[in-house]
């Protein structure tokens, strides 16, 4: 690990002023410190934002649930309103990592976690240094993307939480020195294109302050189901967040793309043909482009959409 300066931010403005250049915000550190040990991240300065008053979950006047960015994964998953109104989010968070890591990790940090592609951690690649190639495409890509990838990068996004947030149309709030902003989660992770190193739509130096769950998306009839190569404490092979709300079905997949994959095609299909879950899944996955070693994910994603929606339907 390279040497770095450390400071605790006194308030948000203090953090934003210190946050430019080679600095990184530190909250739970579960991914950042890990990557610093590997040399993937080498900040010159860490701005500790963990103790900023950005934790806690509150209900807005319009019924939305506002989750502070430094709320830990554990507190998010255990919160009564999350469990009552957005159970798939609670389940998604509980399906991630371990009890210890959930006690450390924060909502803001979770959104910013980097891919778990083994090549990314071990060597230069397009995601780390543009122009250095994607070794995974010709390599060991058993657990890589089947949707939305390009020749520049086939890595998947690792977050479980973000999959559920995507299904619930969550909105990311942030602050910069130029003011506050919002980005819908559906636009938070840009498509891979030929810029896989551009991982979020956040402006430079921005600090995530909250994630907002719209009241209209609340769905007690929602579920997160994660399939992985071990019963616990493993990243998803494929996962699904699904929710039935008034007159609609919301579906997002994890483990299949560079970002949580909102299944708009399947959702639209089900508006026309309610209950045709398998056909909807197949319509969604007709866009899949598996590599030689990960075609099973297409079958798995199809089966998950079908079985979870069947179990969940009113």
């Amino acid at each position: 690990m390279k040497e770095f300066a450390y400071q605790r931010a006194a308030d948000i403005r203090d953090a934003l002023i210190a946050g430019g250049g080679g600095a990184r915000y530190l909250a739970g550190g579960t991914n950042l410190v890990d990557l610093m040990k590997e040399g993937v991240e080498a900040p010159t300065r860490l701005i500790d934002v963990r103790r900023l008053p950005l934790d806690g979950i509150s209900e807005a006047a319009d019924g939305a649930l506002v989750i502070g960015a430094t709320t830990t994964n554990s507190d998010l998953a255990a919160h009564p309103e999350v469990r009552r109104r957005y159970p798939a989010l609670s389940q998604a968070v509980l399906a991630g990592a371990s009890g210890q890591l959930r006690n450390m990790a924060t909502v803001g940090g979770n959104l910013l976690q980097r891919t778990r592609c083994a090549y990314f951690a071990a060597q230069e690649c397009n995601k780390r240094v543009p122009g250095t190639g994607c070794p995974a495409i010709a390599g060991a890509h058993h657990n890589h993307a089947i949707l939305g990838w390009t020749r520049s990068c086939v890595a998947t996004h690792a977050s479980d939480m973000a999959v559920a947030l995507t299904a619930f149309d969550a909105i990311v709030r942030y602050e910069t020195l130029d003011g506050a902003g919002e980005i819908p989660l559906s636009e938070f992770y840009p498509p891979v294109g030929d810029t896989p190193h551009v991982e979020t739509a956040l402006p430079p130096g921005a600090l995530i302050t909250a994630v907002v769950l719209p009241g209209a998306a609340a769905s007690p009839r929602s579920r997160y189901r994660k399939v992985r190569e071990r019963a616990s404490y493993a990243f998803a092979t494929v996962s699904i967040a699904a929710a039935f709300t008034e007159g609609s079905v919301r579906i997002a997949l994890g483990g299949v793309a560079s970002r949580p994959w909102r299944c708009r095609t399947a959702e639209a299909f089900l508006l026309d043909s309610p209950g045709s879950f398998r056909a909807a899944a197949e319509a969604e996955l007709s866009a899949a482009e598996p590599l030689p070693g990960n075609g099973y994910k297409v079958t798995l994603a199809r089966n998950l959409i079908e079985t979870v929606l069947k179990e969940l339907q009113p």
Partner: peptide
Amino acid sequence: GRRVVSCLTLAVA
């Protein structure tokens, strides 16, 4: 009082 992994916790933090 909460369990954490100390290997990813910086002492300074």
